[in-house]
Amino acid sequence: MRSESRVILFLVLFILLPCLAVRGAGREPSCQCQGQPLLVKTIPPMRGKAVLALQERLSQLGYYRKEADGLYGPATVQAVEKLQADLGLPVTGNMDPATWAHLAWVEEKAVVEQPLPPPQGEISILVDTDALILIVYADGEPYKIYPVAVGKWTTPTPLGEWQINSMSSVWEGPFGARWLGLSCPFGNYGIHGTDNPASIGWEVSSGCIRMYNHDVIELFDWVAPGTPVTIIGSRIKSIPIPPRLGPGDVGQAVVPLQWRLRELGQDVGRADGVYGKATEGAVRELQYFYGLPPSGIADRNLLFLLGLGKGGEDR
């Protein structure tokens, strides 16, 4: 009886296949899905190489988080349902031809180019929060560009010069397949994958930098703790600056000061949001030059001179 119902279901789907394919063709490129097996929720769950391959593909996209076991169980069903929900498909939990087609389309969209060999030389990362891209540099030359999602206006991505200070390939939840923690001293921010690939290209995160899972997996292998990560953006102009910044202050407001000091040729080390010895020394140098008391504290006069205070018209 059970085998009969399977045959009927298969025939029904076989008849519906052309219709579903036509539905998908209007939105995305057609794919060769005919060879894909129909994977559905069953008790006991389906198992085999096809399920294993599916799990790996879903994992690449950040939908499947567990170890691939070849079993079409609840975790796989949940991943398929999430994929279907994201793509606006009927949420059945079954890998029907439409879902296969859309899976291929998502993969095609996600894979911008062929995988590159690991970059050689000194690796650094630049995140442009305006262009919503992450650029990997090798010895100062751009090597690869990735699309990213960044922080919302209310929870902005921290601008500044950070370093990767933690790396994890075992990550769960919305952080996708990999986590690269940043050394930002005023919050827990990182570069990570996502379970919401549709969010890439938008300002939607809580401040972290989101990447496609396959991108962050690739990036993960290219970097190491200490890799510099610079995050820039036009939001620098609207960062509120208090009337006084001094030794010991830590925060986003310190970064524009550090960048401005560097523009003037001062050595502030990394613009890391920490008003440390280097920043204090650079402020003192500037005060000395301008004939102001060399206190090392960025007071209203100095901030005004730098265009960072209340009257900073050129920011």
Binding site: F289, Y290, F304, L305, L306, G311, E313
Partner: peptide
């Protein structure tokens, strides 16, 4: 009393105001 480059530095900031 002030020096001229202090005024130049500050003036450059407000020049476009």
């Amino acid at each position: 009393p002030v020096n001229t480059w202090l005024l130049r530095g500050a003036g450059a900031r407000v020049h476009q105001a």
